[in-house]
Design a protein around this nucleic acid. Structure first.
Lengths: 206, 206
DNA sequence: TGTAACTTTGCATTTGATGTAGTTTTCTGG
DNA sequence: CCAGAAAACTACATCAAATGCAAAGTTACA
């Protein structure tokens, strides 16, 4: 599974990680807007120009691992069993998207400051919403592909958008009302249950 | 209701409208990114610097009337009757947010190109998602305020986020699959029904 | 070791956005 | 109608993000 990397690749990886680490540290320390790309590059010992050959924009550093959760969720849907119902599939996909966080405490602590940035810096929040939105599109298409007889594309989109939209807003609103990160996650979890229950009710008539 | 405006105010309004008109026209004609603020200012016969005393950013011109729908929806919720149920209130609020479009054909044709920009230019899509997200926060708080016994804040957020999230994604996905603006609106409408039905089911046990 | 492929770098340029200081325009009260 | 106050506009200067380009440096490999 693991390829042996040449010196060139190893150096590139090291530079990439150095840029990410330097950026996050500076963002946390003095704020996202207050940090310039030159400062990040200097802290990682490369030229400013080189930063932009690793990341297309300053925002992109913050979202360097944004696809991990989406890809896990997509995999869950794509590898569905023959008897899986759409709602359960969706439920599992969402859960798996956050699974790594629930399990890996180390990782959770690593991305905590990043989430704080995304939630509190408007331009990052906008970018996060865009990435999440485009991911939802992929999830909806995958779900429809997995259960074409149960859900048409509009219904699949409605289901995906509803569950994620509800969870997202509930978590954010709770944070805005002073909740801790744990309470925030709990609000999102409850909202997911809430919406899934509604979907189940319309999809599993007694 | 209508105040008599002085020359100063009238001129400001005229300049504002000139900037908006010039901007939209240029955006449509040669693309959003391809249009510079200087060009917009020149077309509206003001200095580039003046543009930024009317709009905080180039993006803001596109969203100059973005609060109209939100304010209508908020008003519907705030002016609720004593017997109104949360789900119905939410349904009416969402509908009223789009009501002007359904009724006013002139307006609908006016904002069609703007919507096209928002849906197809990534930075505008991100900004639109941010504005919509922050609006949803207001709607959730208003809904909870209107029906505090029926919904706690997390449930209100889940409901608002679910309905809007589902509609948004369904409309967008349908567009991405080649739907016309009308079909897109219809997909959004269907998704709204779909999600509302789910909410009703969990909230109105037989 | 030499050369091809790739990476980094410095430099120039464009664009969005902000601060400032000075000019012009509008408003108000006499 | 006029003088002074208030507001708006303009012409700079400046900064940061982002991109293109060509030269210099590094790695790969025959």
């Amino acid at each position: 599974m693991s390829e042996v990397l040449g010196l060139r690749e190893r150096k590139k990886l090291r530079t990439r990680h150095a840029l990410i680490a330097a950026a996050i540290e500076l963002f946390v320390e003095k704020g996202y807007e207050q940090t310039t790309v030159s400062e990040i590059a200097a802290a990682a010992d490369v030229s400013t120009r080189t930063f932009f050959s690793y990341f297309a924009s300053k925002e992109d550093v913050v979202f360097h691992n944004s696809r991990d959760g989406v890809d896990r969720a997509l995999r869950v849907i794509d590898e569905h069993g023959p008897g899986d119902r759409a709602v359960d599939l969706l439920s599992r996909a969402i859960t798996s998207g956050f699974a790594a966080l629930a399990v890996d405490d180390q990782l959770a602590r690593e991305i905590a400051p990043i989430n704080h940035l995304i939630l509190n810096v408007p331009s990052l929040r906008a970018r996060g919403l865009l990435l999440l939105f485009d991911s939802q599109q992929e999830l909806a298409e995958a779900l429809h592909r997995a259960c074409p007889d149960e859900l048409n594309l509009t219904e699949a989109s409605a289901a995906v958008g509803a569950v994620i939209g509800g969870a997202k807003l509930a978590a954010f609103v709770s944070m805005r009302h002073g909740a801790s990160p744990e309470e925030m996650l709990e609000a999102g979890r409850q909202a997911t249950e809430f919406t899934l229950a509604g979907l189940r009710a319309t999809f599993t008539p007694p």
